[in-house]
Design a protein around this nucleic acid. Sequence first.
DNA 1: AGAAATACCCGTACGC
DNA 2: TGCGTACGGGTATTTC
Length: 266
Amino acid sequence: MPELPEVETIVRRMRPEIVGTTISGVDLRWERTLATPNWVTFHKNILGQKVDAVNRRAKYIVIQLSADTLIIHLRMSGDILFRPVDAPVEKHDRLLLNLDDKKTLAFNDMRKFGRVWLTPTPNDVLGKLGPEPLDAAFTADDLFKRISAHKRQIKPLLLDQHVIAGLGNIYTDEALHLAGLHPLTKSDTIKRSQAEILWRSIRQVLNEGIQRNGTSIDWIYRGGQYQDYLHVYGRTDEPCFHCGTPIQKIVVGQRGTHFCPKCQKV
DNA sequence: AGAAATACCCGTACGC
DNA sequence: TGCGTACGGGTATTTC
């Protein structure tokens, strides 16, 4: 199982040191990395632009250039590396950007899921994303309104980035366990009080993940320790820390889903 | 319209 | 040992 590119692991790959450099060369190694525009336009437009800022929105890295915005989504296995300009191309390199002829920004992505956009209107890519769960402005009431507006299973609903932005499969399972909510619970049946507990749980597991430097499940990302603190994810048949009941694994919305059948009732 | 299913990927683990 | 296959993740797209 690969690493989860959650907020924390995204932040550590934002490479803020590129701010102030100018893009002087481009090498696209795998065409479909480019979500938009086409290669010719991308090449023509990005050359000569200066990097003004590096930010994050949900799981997207947002690089503000002089005229356009470069947006990168790492998906599962993507990484961003800062290398000397004469460093050799590595296996799984998808896009190389030369910065001032001294350094190269390499987008490396084994599974080819990651995508890059270059656009003058970043809102086209980011505009429909839901709120940041750790934003101080995001309240329990917001969450309650958003989940009760749908009649869906709570687990796939929480994974929907238009409803709330930033939760992946691992943290969703953990948050639902902490909140005592079964992953198949219909979202419109969740009471206001339960939504508040879920709101608190989401923020707790994300904050704990950040404190532990993210989750390293396998060989792709090795910097985190939160995998040692997971309560349900990857603990199939192991005893629930709360009640001792074996953790169950089912498939919900095509995703492996771990829960305690005693602590999380429908 | 909204919800659910599918497509996109490949290194690894596992069964025979 | 070697080969074939299932698996996992996030989101855009397609289907229901």
